[in-house]
Design a protein around this nucleic acid. Structure first.
Lengths: 207, 207
DNA sequence: AAATGAATGTACCGTACGGTACGGTTCCCG
DNA sequence: CGGGAACCGTACCGTACGGTACATTCATTT
């Protein structure tokens, strides 16, 4: 199901560029029409209104990301641990990406408007796929006896917290990513190491 | 050092109310003047321009929060653990508060503008005091032998991640705080329990 | 009481932007 | 070839908002 034509995708790509470059205030219908060599009338025909355009940008960006399903062939503990580290690095990479930051800022900036439409879209198309991928990974680990937990959601949230900490909000606030994306592999390994000490085989379940 | 007169404080309070109620788009100079029974000219005289007003709102709000310094009389392990739980509950309470969410949304929404002025203000007046309080607490715990870590910043970031997880961004995105602020004491105790398993006495330091 | 300073409220200006209308062009399909 | 659909570019409209100017009113001081 591809909800947009190639032409529309190109326009949306252009819109994302504008958003990343100059923030929401740089994303005007006139500006987008000029940058994408299309007419404002087409924009309104395709996306309804400006909010529709923003929503389309989010779903379009989400459609570009595909989550690699882990082949659940019997992995060794080392393989599994490496998979978690890869997930951690991927997560940090995604959250620190230009487009992700710009879209999250956009959705957060509009979180008061009618029903927080954009926030819901970001959660559904952006965060949920990541969560399902991670949950599958965690449950695979549990099935093989490498992890021990009772509540998958609880374990996932802990994993997320150990990986991301408050770096996401700091980046959203505009902190220079110099100190934040620094030594990403080391930070990933550290988080997974901590996670194993909380949920690894042999660790007691909480409470 | 009180940088604002009582009258200006009242106006800023009113501005915060407007911001919480309707988001940034509801905070217009004309609207604020009407709501606060002052003139636009006074607003510009006091705060320079709209950005100055936004900055003043942040510093004003920050001036209201005072971080209780822990009396470092020799606490028992139980006292100390309880202090951490209290910190965790306080942190969740602050981050989930109306005004905090509105101001963070405001700063994030303007993170592209000239130098991310607001983001820096939020970091300096909002997050830094919290961090210093927590660091003092952590080092107190280490001095008494209840905690074991080499890098205070690393320990603090882990603590923050265990407490907040991704709840802050989810709330910023507009997720109903129903499931998020649910059972806050339990979540606080859980986080501190996990933290002790990573950094408590007897735990091996990382790497 | 006069005067000075500050604050209010209203009116005004310029601009930027969302949304619409329209003429002209291209391209596809019968 | 002819007709229609889609689209481009531009021009236009209404409004909302940031910022300024000004006349009036209030309070404080001398």
């Amino acid at each position: 199901m591809e909800p947009f034509t190639p032409r529309q995708n190109a326009v949306l790509e252009c819109a994302l560029q504008l958003l990343v470059a100059g923030g929401e205030r740089a994303l005007t219908t006139a500006g987008l029409a000029r940058a994408a060599n299309c007419s404002k009338e087409s924009l309104y025909k395709w996306f309804g209104d400006r909010d529709g355009l923003l929503a389309a940008m989010i779903t379009y960006q989400a459609s570009k990301v595909r989550t690699p399903g882990p082949r659940d062939s019997m992995p060794t503990l080392d393989d599994f641990s490496r998979s978690l580290v890869v997930f951690a690095e991927d997560l940090m990479g995604v959250l620190g990406g230009d487009v992700s930051l710009a879209l999250n800022r956009l959705a957060i900036g509009q979180a008061d408007r009618d029903g927080a439409q954009l926030g819901a879209l970001v959660r559904e198309h952006g965060r949920l796929p990541i969560e399902t991928r991670a949950r599958a990974l965690l449950e695979l680990g549990r099935r093989h006896g490498y992890l021990k937990f009772s509540d998958t959601h609880e374990a996932y949230e802990t994993l997320y917290g150990l990986i991301v900490r408050d770096n996401h909000v700091r980046m959203l606030l505009g902190e220079s990513p110099a100190g934040l994306s620094e030594d990403r592999p080391r930070r990933a390994r550290l988080a997974i190491s901590q996670f194993f000490r909380l949920f690894g085989h042999g660790a007691q379940d909480i409470e």
